[in-house]
């Protein structure tokens, strides 16, 4: 539980994808997203899938992990499939029952929609699977940097993410302890009915929130005492270095996207 909360979804490894600059990976994900949106035919989707499988395999993370990554979204995919099947009409009629029709085109569109979503979720998992939260955060910071022109502070965003990464596990631990303390005082979460469970989670919010605020207050002081001033110029211990492999990786996605467009 704890390791999972600390490292997010990161899967330890030493493949060439693990070693890539997070910015390259972020860029590649954007390109892949565009490609998925553009892919509307079976052929395009097949090429895209083949490409994705090759890239995923080269990360040397068990393939099943990627498939499992899309698991929480299965109901949504199923819904999309049913929706298209029922309401898109065209091609051969496979089944008719009053005004209710299932057509070949509807089924096909439904399949494509589910397929695209599955592809997108599974593939983009490679970003969080092969990048540590720290590196990801750094990548985000430099990716967001251009936004400072329009007055968005990239630094405050990434500081926020850093602090969340740091404290979410702690807050969960505290909440867990509270649940145990409640159980000791006769309100065992496991024994409760659904309504009471909801009520109990609400009562938990009070001490957890009070605790978080108290913590935040002290944290701000600790940061200030060590010289933190929001948006003041600062250096960074961690730096990102762009290598040839990163350019190559991005190029691969550009080529893939161009092929999709030409087709």
């Amino acid at each position: 539980m704890q390791t999972r909360m600390i490292m997010g979804r990161y899967v330890e490894g030493d493949s060439w994808i693990h070693r890539l600059d997070p910015r390259a990976k972020l860029g590649a994900m954007v390109l892949f997203l565009v490609a998925v949106i553009l892919a509307s035919r079976g052929l395009e989707l097949s090429i895209l899938t083949a490409f994705a499988v090759v890239v995923l395999l080269s990360s040397r993370i068990p393939f099943t992990r990627y498939i499992r990554a899309a698991k929480p979204l299965w109901p949504l995919m199923a819904f999309m499939f049913i929706f298209y099947t029922l309401f898109e009409h065209g091609g051969d009629i496979w089944l008719q029952w009053g005004s209710f029709r299932i057509t070949s085109e509807g089924v096909l569109l439904g399949l494509f929609a589910a397929w695209r979503m599955f592809l997108l979720i599974s593939f983009t998992s490679i970003l969080t699977f092969t990048t540590t939260p720290i590196a990801l955060n750094l990548g985000l910071e430099s990716a967001l940097k251009p936004l400072s022109i329009v007055g968005v502070s990239a630094q405050s965003w990434t500081m926020m993410i850093t602090i969340s990464l740091r404290f979410i596990p702690t807050i969960f631990q505290e909440a867990e302890k509270l649940l145990k303390a409640q159980a000791s005082r006769g309100a065992d979460y496991q024994d409760l009915k659904l309504m009471d469970k909801a009520k109990m989670v609400l009562t938990l919010m009070v001490p957890v929130t009070v605790g978080a605020f108290r913590r935040a207050e002290e944290l701000v002081m600790a940061m200030e005492a060590r010289g933190y001033v929001l948006d003041a110029p600062r250096t960074s211990l961690r730096t990102l270095t762009w290598r040839a492999a990163d350019t190559l990786f991005l190029l691969l996605f550009v080529i893939m996207l161009s092929v999709m467009i030409v087709l």
Partner: peptide, 30 residues
């Protein structure tokens, strides 16, 4: 659990009612 009372570390962080009395009554009512 009514016969074995367990007090966790920093028990004060586990108080949640508006008044001391309500907090004290929580266990017995449960």
């Amino acid at each position: 659990r009514s016969r074995v009372g367990l007090v966790f570390q920093f028990p004060e962080q586990q108080l949640f009612e508006e008044t001391v009395e309500k907090d004290l009554m929580f266990g017995p009512i449960q």
